[in-house]
Design a protein around this nucleic acid. Sequence first.
DNA 1: TGATATTATATTGCATACAATAATGGAATT
DNA 2: AATTCCATTATTGTATGCAATATAATATCA
Lengths: 232, 232
Amino acid sequence: MAKKVSDAGGGRSQAVHRALKRAIIDQALPPGAKLPEDSIGERLGVSRTLVREALVRLSQEGLVELRPNKGAAVARPSLEEGRDLFLTRMALERLVVETLSGNLTREQIDTLSAHIAGEEAARTEHAASIRLAGEFHTLLAQMTNNASLIRYVNELVARSSLILALYGRPHSSECAVSEHRDLLDKLIAGKTEEAAALMAHHLDSITARALLPTENSIKDVLATYALAEGLA
Amino acid sequence: MAKKVSDAGGGRSQAVHRALKRAIIDQALPPGAKLPEDSIGERLGVSRTLVREALVRLSQEGLVELRPNKGAAVARPSLEEGRDLFLTRMALERLVVETLSGNLTREQIDTLSAHIAGEEAARTEHAASIRLAGEFHTLLAQMTNNASLIRYVNELVARSSLILALYGRPHSSECAVSEHRDLLDKLIAGKTEEAAALMAHHLDSITARALLPTENSIKDVLATYALAEGLA
DNA sequence: TGATATTATATTGCATACAATAATGGAATT
DNA sequence: AATTCCATTATTGTATGCAATATAATATCA
């Protein structure tokens, strides 16, 4: 009965989309990277048509820029866009928190707890660590069962990785895992306002770590490295 | 030098996108309407390729549904999606209000005021009235200068028109114009919390008018008509 | 040599062609 | 008359081809 070759659900174009998205989020394709249609198609074994379709989708999600007649490239959001994005994220994730607070099922609690454990385990692996931190937020959103909310949080989390790639400090573990644990505790306890405050603080600190370093950023960066090397 | 025939900015695909979007929002293409690629292409004088691209974009925006191998159709959001959507809208528009409150420039105030006047003027024309009501919200979002916020509010407002088309009561002027005026006043005065409360109430009443009619909906609907006919 | 013009090459924009899948209509059978 | 089956038609999925535009490489001139 000749099953289809390898199409993990929903059209080959979506497969291309997922592949590129993942590559972008993993920073295998860094911000600014050119995305020529036929190289990609060649590499993935599909025609330009499908690549094009995927690129359109990605551009709608803000992950790639589509410059007319000049081709697509991984988006390079400005610092300002970064700040805006985190503000928007805050507004939406606050809704997530409010929706979930005191309403988590046993099963959901277990899932989240397990995820956090995973984060702790992967603390050393930089790449995985970043991805997992993002997934914690999308996991929370998922549990609200609110379709638009889920979509937007997913999008913003994905784009956040671009921001962090561009403006994040080298070794900052983007999301303190302990803050995730604390947040979960408040959510379980139904302490809505405290949970919201924690989420706010959490996102704020990401923003601060990534976006603010202006004046004395060089010193700070060096300090980090110095510490790691046992200097200073 | 033979300028291009009629391409109002950014590729013909986007033109198709805009055309379809407008048709959907104006309810010229009602929810559920089939969107065959070649009929549309024929009508608009472009090939299926471009129509397809536009349809992909529209599907990402939640305005059309893309059923594999079965073609595209104008989306028919469920009641539940409707409620979710307005919840999400609330979260985002609250951010809009907080951002704008007390920070409107003279020029912005004039623009908004003029727009409201336009809404009042067009109160009788049902179609225009709906469109203008939506535009008031997108106008506010625009003024925040927050790119992601603008995008999402635009999207949600557009999708709201689908919800109202499906579940709105026939003659309800979807957005009470006076509420827009009141909101503007609070924003000018910098009364943030009051403005936010007004916005919440405003969106709530839209939701209530459209979505809630559950149990006794038949009675309510009939009551409305009865009143209109001088009965009861 | 340095800047500019010019050709050559690569890449995108769009349309079309063909294969694959679904929708339709009309027998044939019960 | 209702229903199943098959053939026909319409529509989508994908690849490819050609024209248009950008990028590069090369040559030309000051």
